[in-house]
Simulated assay, not measured.
Amino acid sequence: MRYLVPSRGTEAFNNVAKWLTARGISLMGSRVLAVRGRKSGEIRTIVVNLFEHEGERYLLSPRGHTQWVRNLRAAGEGELRLGRRTERFVPVEVADADKTPLIRLYLHKWAWETGAFFEGLKADSPDAEIAAAAPGFPVFRLVAR
């Protein structure tokens, strides 16, 4: 399973983005994801990039099968926070075969921020290249709760 540990620079950027988002300032769709830890049972939070495609909302993990991904799978529910507003949701994991347009859209919007995690993939990469990399990038469709 693909999992890239965040660098200190990434952690610093994420902490600033999380602080702003928690105060109601969204950076191009950022939200604070809150999900119960699968081992501790404690609520864990991280900043994520929420995006829409064909009227549905999605989360994608550019660093792979991270702790928030594993916790979300185990918990079966989560919250997105922006300032004082909280939205509860149920995640539906997207099949690898259906990820190509979602990964392409994510890259188009956030390559400036997360492009290094995609190991050479670009928004204009051929479908076959994106499809081959899809198993390393968990994607969740969000269903309102």
Results as ranks from 00 to 15, higher is better:
Met1Lys: 03
Arg2Lys: 06
Tyr3Ser: 06
Tyr3Val: 08
Leu4Asp: 02
Leu4Gln: 03
Leu4His: 01
Val5Ala: 13
Val5Trp: 03
Ser7Pro: 02
Arg8Pro: 04
Thr10Met: 11
Glu11Asp: 13
Phe13Met: 09
Phe13Leu: 14
Asn14Val: 01
Asn14His: 08
Ala17Cys: 02
Ala17Asp: 01
Lys18Asp: 02
Trp19Ile: 01
Trp19Cys: 09
Leu20His: 12
Thr21Trp: 11
Thr21Lys: 12
Arg23Pro: 01
Arg23Thr: 00
Gly24Lys: 05
Gly24Arg: 05
Ile25His: 00
Ile25Ala: 04
Ile25Asp: 00
Ser26Thr: 10
Ser26Cys: 01
Leu27Tyr: 11
Met28His: 14
Met28Tyr: 14
Gly29Cys: 10
Ser30Thr: 15
Arg31Ile: 13
Val32Lys: 10
Leu33Asn: 09
Ala34Asn: 14
Arg36Leu: 13
Gly37Asn: 13
Arg38Glu: 06
Arg38His: 09
Arg38Phe: 05
Lys39Thr: 14
Ser40Gln: 13
Ser40Arg: 12
Ser40Thr: 15
Glu42His: 14
Ile43Asp: 06
Ile46Met: 15
Ile46Val: 15
Val47Trp: 04
Val47Leu: 01
Val48Asn: 07
Asn49Glu: 07
Leu50Thr: 03
Leu50Pro: 01
Glu54Arg: 14
Glu54Ile: 02
Glu54Lys: 12
Gly55Asp: 11
Glu56Arg: 15
Arg57Gln: 12
Leu59Met: 13
Leu60Gln: 11
Pro62Val: 05
Arg63Gly: 00
Gly64Asp: 02
His65Tyr: 06
His65Ile: 00
His65Lys: 06
Trp68Ile: 07
Val69Met: 01
Asn71Asp: 15
Arg73Leu: 14
Glu77Ala: 15
Glu77Cys: 12
Glu77Tyr: 10
Arg81Pro: 06
Arg81Ile: 08
Gly83Met: 06
Gly83Tyr: 08
Arg84Glu: 12
Arg84Phe: 05
Arg88Pro: 00
Arg88Ala: 04
Arg88Glu: 03
Arg88Phe: 02
Phe89Ile: 08
Pro91Glu: 09
Val92Gln: 09
Asp98Ala: 11
Asp98Asn: 10
Asp98Glu: 13
Lys99Ser: 07
Lys99His: 08
Lys99Thr: 03
Lys99Ala: 07
Thr100Met: 05
Pro101His: 09
Pro101Lys: 07
Pro101Phe: 05
Pro101Gln: 08
Leu102Ile: 14
Leu102Asp: 13
Ile103Tyr: 10
Arg104Pro: 09
Arg104Gly: 09
Tyr106Gly: 06
His108Tyr: 11
Trp110Thr: 00
Trp110Leu: 08
Trp112Phe: 13
Trp112Arg: 10
Trp112His: 10
Glu113Tyr: 11
Thr114Ser: 13
Gly115Cys: 04
Gly115Trp: 07
Ala116Ser: 12
Phe117His: 10
Glu119Gly: 00
Glu119Arg: 12
Gly120Ser: 00
Leu121Val: 08
Asp124Tyr: 06
Pro126Glu: 14
Ala128Asn: 02
Glu129Gln: 10
Glu129Cys: 01
Glu129Tyr: 01
Ile130Trp: 02
Ala131Lys: 04
Ala131Asn: 03
Gly136Val: 03
Phe137Tyr: 15
Val139Ser: 04
Phe140Ser: 04
Arg141Asn: 06
Leu142Pro: 09
Ala144Met: 10
